[in-house]
């Protein structure tokens, strides 16, 4: 019944979200949710702490060997600095322990798992990101690029994304309340439909005052204010998810 409308434009779908779109060979566009600087900083700190901990353990153990332990300790430092991220990213599908804790992972720009070449490039280039001090170049690059890529990501063609998709609202017990469907008085745009359905789904999570306040914003559509506006919006939402006269029973 909504066919024949203009296809969604990007700004209609997700206006402000940090999202990267990837078209697959199957001709469908998948969306990756790229991760911003802050979770990445936390992940880097966690990884740094893990490495620091491993170094101190290695230092204590190897000190038992006196002078003989110095060489192996330097090798441990070398591997920690250069190989740690690459090994985890390649063998654990783009996830270092720090990223795992923050729910992040590295993927190729097309959404496929990061491969050895890309992982080596982005981690070798870490030094360039570090320059001139304290990852200044990397932070600048993250802030200036659409997909929050540091210099290493730009060279390797990788992005850091949130690994878990947001839990669907239905699985959190959020669904459009079962009220009698009411057709909206005018045809609605896709994003308008989304807003109304989203409102109905999330209604249970707000205090009633907040719900009325939000419904008032749509008084132009509902022609009502306060609780009556909320009720009318719910009716429209119910209609928009496909329910018809007899609530709970969809049409074919």
């Amino acid at each position: 019944m909504f066919r024949g409308k203009a296809p969604l434009t990007e700004s209609e779908v997700l206006p402000f979200d940090a999202v990267r779109r990837v078209e697959t060979p199957e001709g469908v566009t998948l969306t990756l949710r790229v991760a911003g600087p802050l979770p990445r900083l936390y992940a880097a700190l966690v990884d740094g702490a893990i490495r620091g901990f491993a170094y101190s353990i290695a230092a204590v153990v190897l000190s038992l060997l006196h002078d003989l332990g110095q060489g192996p300790l330097l090798l441990v430092l070398f591997l920690g600095e250069w190989a740690y991220p690459v090994l985890f990213e390649v063998f654990r599908r783009g996830v270092t322990p720090g990223k795992s804790l923050l729910g992040l992972k590295v993927v190729n720009g097309d959404g496929t798992p990061v491969n050895l070449t890309a992982s080596m490039l982005r981690n070798l280039l870490r030094f360039a990101d570090f320059l001139p001090f304290g990852y200044a170049a990397g932070v600048l690059s993250i802030l200036l690029t659409d997909d929050f890529q540091r210099l290493g990501d730009l060279v390797a063609g990788t992005v850091v994304v949130h690994a878990d998709s947001p839990r669907p609202r239905a699985s959190r017990g959020l669904r459009v309340p079962d009220v009698p469907p009411v057709a909206p008085p005018v045809p609605l745009h896709a994003h308008e439909q989304r807003v109304i359905v989203g409102f109905a789904e999330r209604l249970a999570t707000w205090p009633p005052e907040r719900a009325r306040e939000l419904a008032d914003l749509a008084s132009g559509l509902t022609g009502a204010a306060g609780q009556e506006g909320v009720t009318r919006l719910l009716g429209h939402a119910s209609w928009l998810v496909g329910r018809r006269r007899k609530a709970g029973e969809g049409e074919r």
Binding site: F2, T24, V28, L30, T31, L32, R93, V107, G111, T112, P113, S165, P166, P168, R169, A170, L174, A190, Q193, R194, V197, G198, E201, L240, V241, G242
Partner: peptide, 19 residues
């Protein structure tokens, strides 16, 4: 326009299988 939650569930599934 079945809604964002269904869309993001299927998007997640497709991404994982794609991977």
């Amino acid at each position: 326009h079945y809604g964002t939650d269904l869309e993001s569930r299927l998007n997640g599934l497709a991404l994982e299988a794609h991977e």
